[in-house]
Design a binder for these strands. Structure first.
Length: 203
DNA sequence: AGATTGATCCAT
DNA sequence: TGGATCAATCTG
């Protein structure tokens, strides 16, 4: 089983969701192929007051999705060139989301826990490029029908489930592997710019 | 450090 | 309607 993360997972405090997303699998289905990666870096954008968040300008056509239901994608174009992927969190009408900044990837022939052929994709623009994500996903539910979702376990068909040392066991991130820091690229956000709402995996 | 690039938002 | 801005990335 792939254990697709559901609305209940995202309908919680954003800082908690953000940290728990580390180690989860981002999965993109294109035709019959699946691309997947393990989430290694995220940032939280929380509430209507957070000046670093697009939602601080209120409900607009663009930010509407952040005020919507948890478990939906918020995808926007930045600098006219790069897409950024967020997953909406918390209850409807409270604007919050988690930006997925980095992943590590491994194809189905690899064994992640054996550390064979792991590629890092660092930066939200590069994550979207790697997964072929664009505005079409904006405001879509994160599920298999959409073709883009988050799972607790690897979608690999090859690995055996529930065996330690196999991909399908999932990735356990210990608290000591998680670092916390300021969000990137939000120096304009006044007192909000220094909020330690970025989480990333080391080692 | 500078260029790139276009959707978005708000003040004309 | 115009123009500043921007949750980034690449090249020097």
């Amino acid at each position: 089983m792939h254990k697709l993360l559901s609305k209940d997972f995202f309908n919680r405090p954003t800082l908690q969701v953000a940290q728990e997303l580390l180690g989860k699998f981002l999965v993109r289905k294109i035709g019959h192929r699946k691309i997947f990666g393990i989430i290694t870096e995220v940032e939280a954008y929380i509430g209507p007051k957070d000046k670093a968040s697009h939602a601080s300008r209120g409900r607009t056509k663009r930010t509407e999705v952040m005020f919507g239901k948890p478990g939906y994608w918020y995808v926007y174009l930045i600098y006219g060139m790069y897409y950024c992927l967020n997953i909406v969190t918390e209850k409807e009408h409270y604007p919050a989301a988690v930006l997925i900044r980095s992943i590590v990837t491994s194809d189905s022939h690899s064994n992640i826990l054996k550390n064979i052929r792991i590629d890092e994709v660092r930066g939200p623009g590069k994550v979207c490029k790697y997964f072929k994500i664009d505005k079409r996903f904006n405001a879509k539910h994160a599920n298999k029908k959409t073709g883009l979702w988050i799972a607790a376990h690897s979608p690999s068909e090859r690995a055996s489930p529930n065996k330690v040392g196999r991909e399908d066991y999932g990735i356990k991130i210990s608290p000591r592997q998680i670092k916390r820091g300021k969000r990137i690229g939000v120096d304009y956000a006044g007192k909000w710019k220094d909020k330690p709402w970025r989480f990333y995996v080391v080692g």
